[in-house]
């Protein structure tokens, strides 16, 4: 659930508005979905489109009885042949089972469709994402690597293992499990070994941030000790301090860049600026370390550096100046 492209016409905005209203009713909607919706609402024209759709719904809801009565040849659900027979009172239970069965069928289908081909090859292919857009790459085993802006990977399949080198930047991996051919990501000094899963890797100034959404990975630093990271956890490997910190996180946040958003919960400005500097062409500098200790929770939309700093200025007591080709942030 996301608004990947920003809609332009009023028509498209209303459609996006309707999509948010419908999908956010679902139990599946996550906190990230709500935060993405909030970011979408930040655009005045989107907001206006939402109000139009809401007013229409309000009018229909207020007159539901009259409209239903006035409809010509009302379409009644009793005319519809149910998928399976059953009493109506069981509707919800059947629906739940229907979903489970559909899911089971889908995974069965996936099981047959996904090719388990492992072409022996030592060829190396390099992929990179441009500075202003992310890029999704389907690997030969149907695993997926989503590259964030400016990221560079090399892919090398051998007879024994699947190797990906994350040379620069950030990437999210969704890996098809294959115990016979381990999936390894080598990020500088660190190696992340996948145990059938979905995870995000971000190379940072002094280390690596590993966030696991599904399954588990093993992370091995230069020291040789391996740490297991399970779903819902993040491991920050800090080479400067020779330490690795494991914490519980909402993993969706780490993947939000794929929808053009950065999501923070109580993050320091220093961390955020490091992130922003990976996105913008114009470098951002903190005037002193104390301003870097300011904390922020919320959603930033990935935009040119200037705009992202303005987004922060709206929430934090800071001001920014352009000096010799860089943006300098000071306390206000």
């Amino acid at each position: 659930m996301s608004a990947d492209q920003s809609p332009n016409t009023e028509d498209e905005r209303r459609e996006a508005a309707a999509a948010w209203l419908v999908r956010l009713q679902s139990d599946d909607a996550s906190e990230t979905d709500w935060l993405n919706f909030e970011a979408w609402l930040g655009d005045a024209e989107n907001k206006a489109a939402l109000v139009v759709v809401e007013n229409a719904i309000a009018e229909i809801d207020d007159h539901a009885g009259e409209i239903a009565a006035a409809l010509k040849s009302p379409v009644r659900s009793t005319k519809v042949t149910p998928m399976r027979s059953g009493r109506r009172s069981q509707g919800r239970i059947r629906a739940a089972w229907g979903g489970a069965i559909a899911l089971a069928l889908a995974s069965a289908a996936a099981f047959f469709v996904v090719p388990r081909v492992m072409t022996p090859s030592v060829e190396e292919t390099s992929y990179s994402a441009p500075a202003d857009a992310s890029r999704s790459i389907t690997l030969p085993d149907m695993s997926i690597a989503d590259l964030n802006r400016g990221a560079v990977i090399r892919v090398r399949w051998t007879v024994k293992e699947r190797r990906v080198y994350l040379d620069k930047g950030e990437a999210a991996f969704s890996v098809n499990h294959d115990p016979a051919h381990p999936f390894l990501v080598l990020a500088g000094e660190d190696t992340v070994r996948d145990i059938g899963t979905e995870f995000n890797l971000q190379r940072r100034a002094d280390g690596l941030l590993v966030t696991v959404r599904d399954g588990a990975v093993g992370v091995k630093g230069p020291g040789g000790t391996s740490v297991n990271v399970n779903a819902g956890h993040a491991l920050l490997v800090d080479h400067a301090k020779h330490q690795a910190i494991l914490s519980q996180v909402n993993p969706d946040d780490a993947f939000a860049w794929r929808q053009g958003r950065l999501i923070y919960h109580d993050a320091t400005l220093a961390t955020i600026v490091e992130d922003l500097n990976r996105y913008g062409a114009e470098p951002i500098r903190l005037a002193d370390t104390s301003v870097g200790q300011l904390r922020f929770s919320g959603v930033l939309m990935i935009q040119p550096a200037r705009n992202m700093v303005s987004q922060l200025e709206a929430f934090l007591p800071l001001r920014s100046d352009e000096e010799k080709g860089e943006i300098v942030i000071r306390s206000r």
Binding site: Q25, S26, I60, D61, A64, I67, A68, L71, P74, V75, S77, V80, T81, P82, M83, G91, R92, R94, A95, A96, G98, G99, A102
Partner: peptide, 20 residues
């Protein structure tokens, strides 16, 4: 119509109409 005027949930409608 099923959702607004018959108060059926999306899941119920999916099952009744045989769609996802």
């Amino acid at each position: 119509t099923m959702h607004k005027f018959e108060d059926r949930s999306y899941a119920e409608i999916a099952t009744l109409l045989g769609i996802s």
